[in-house]
Design a protein around this nucleic acid. Structure first.
Lengths: 205, 205, 205, 205
DNA sequence: CATGAATGAGCCTTCATTCAT
DNA sequence: AATGAATGAAGGCTCATTCAT
């Protein structure tokens, strides 16, 4: 039940270095963007030589993989309890939106970094590296939630898939907004979004 | 009243070359992503030597500037008539959403290219190159629309700014979706989004 | 006895264009230096397309050849009468120095351009392009002058060759000085140099 | 008291590489000239990949900066003791001229390299990069020397500034001569120059 | 465990020159 | 007589990665 991210026999110190490097990678990605997130710059941020990163990760790609894993893990830990606390589908939907936007507020860099990688990391053949593994599961969860709400009569009629996508995309959009306007009032934003989707999922009068 | 994009004394042939190069840049950006959209690859796509691009544009940056201009222009030409055709605020909102999603369907590469640039093009100091010039104007337009609808009693109470942002972001989100699932049924998507925001903007019963 | 620089059957207009281009090349060389004296920049200075230069000269190298010829010609025309006017060896030496420095004052760009080419133009094998053709003849002339002065008892004992070189180099040095200090008082400089070499060539008391 | 040029914590090996590269840069500058002194050619001369130079210096400009520093340093070390050994102003002047010309003989490449940079290195705006920082100090030193000699009655009346410039320029001129005639007898040249300026600075009979 | 050193592929750009018109 | 279009070679530089220590 403990340390589930450190798979093989990694020293405590090793794990610390990796965490530090991942944290710095996140910072650089968030503030400088994908194309400027070079090994050199990450190393500099970590006050460490480039080789240290190579030593611990082997490849830039693997650093980014770990960034993604770290963000997912952090987001999950943050979100799940909030969802569990809500009982009705409608409450759960509100908790999900508010939770995700809240996470944006408290972990701006995490989400920006994830987004940069999401947008830009590609396989050698040019295809996008990330897609289903994550988004699907997230969207799926919301979709299930919506379906359950429709079954129980809490929600009206609409395509659960499209609504789920819209929810996710609206939230991701907040992030984009945040890039240009760091002073954005996320609380108000969260409330309004909750309200928005509350109305959108309501049963026809 | 015609050709308003070809400012100085540009030959017909030159304009053609420029258009061709811009088109190829759009293709490469859309299919290969920002970081692989190099002069070399764009030139290859255009079956032309790198120098040709330099000759006609001077700089990679200027090619991308032109890509942005081209997409904006195309999108505007596509959207404005649709908006004008709609009379009521509610109809206008629906026309806007449907129009924008429809444009995604007919000009996938255009929008993907724009997005890549949007996300990645930065000034030398690391700050993002694009932000207000466009997004603002777009969001502003929607915001005005929503305000007008509220004033006329067509829409209920909500923050026009947040709702406008949500609309825009939801649409942008479709694009992201499209990156991973090219077979996405955009018609259904458009209808559902129209419906979604139709409900979300409704007056409390 | 007429037009001796326009060898083959060149139109008057042709000759004018060539002269214009050479003049512009001189300007660019003088103000921007050798490495920035590109075809493009020379053409721009002449308000003409690059191709015009190619058409009239065939090669950048040939433009520079013409620049050299032009400067030599102009300098010779300027200097010879002054020399002829002086009668004694000592007067001739003074006239030479004053004349050359005076030419620097009236034709700064000419001499700077010449100097840039002198310093930088090389053959394909890397060897310097210019050397004997000019310097030698100039230095030789001064050397003869000095020898004549020694023979007639006007000058004292010294190596005519070294003294001649020193004279030439001192004058060239003024040019270098001029590069950094355009406001240099060349009249004073000329007087002092004349005086200097007057003393240096004097017979031991 | 040792190694005062290796400012930060530079390895012995690093310093060696840097020295090697600077030496090769000097060679290439001296034999091939400024415009052919490219990263590629310097690297080739050093039997090393271009990247090594970048790794150790970051920029071509910085390589050249180091070349300049190296030449200055070497020249100073060579010259100062000679000057100190001479006691009278007249002796000092002779020592200076002979010393500088001697240095040309023993460090031809050094001086040629410096000269190439001096002549050609420019700032982005096209203005010459080098000028006062060094030349001034050199010329100033000679000027002081001459003034002192005039004050003490060792020298006659003349403009110390112009005479100092003439001295410097005459010496620099030797270098130009050397470019075209590598077999030049510098000893004779030095003696004659010393003699020349000895006479030129003498008091009127 | 960490590092400095080195490398090669690739990037954007400059430039003299060629060619068809 | 002049030009626009195009090109290939080369230039300086960035960067992920390899390697010996």
């Amino acid at each position: 039940m403990r340390s589930d991210s450190s798979r093989p026999g990694r020293t405590f110190l090793e794990e610390a270095r990796r965490a530090q490097i991942v944290a710095c990678a996140i910072d650089v990605l968030a503030t400088e963007g994908y194309s400027r997130a070079t090994m050199a710059r990450i190393a500099e941020q970590a006050q460490v030589s480039k080789s240290v990163i190579v030593y611990h990760f082997g490849t830039k790609e693997k650093v980014f993989d770990q960034v993604v894993a770290e963000v997912f893990q952090t987001a999950t830990v943050d979100l799940v309890p909030r969802l569990d606390a809500a009982k009705t589908p409608r409450a759960k939907l509100g908790a999900y939106i508010a939770g995700r936007v809240g996470f944006l507020a408290s972990h701006r860099a995490h989400m920006l970094a994830l987004f940069e990688i999401w947008m830009n990391l590609r396989n050698e053949d040019g295809t996008l590296r990330m897609s289903e593994s994550d988004a699907e599961s997230t969207v799926d969860a919301v979709e299930q939630l919506l379906r359950a709400g429709q079954a129980s009569g809490d929600f009206g009629q609409f395509s659960p898939r499209v609504m789920a996508m819209a929810v996710r995309q609206a939230i991701d959009g907040v992030l984009l907004q945040l890039r240009h306007d760091p002073a954005l009032d996320l609380d108000e934003y969260a409330n309004e979004l909750v309200e928005l989707f509350d109305r959108a999922t309501r049963r026809r009068r």
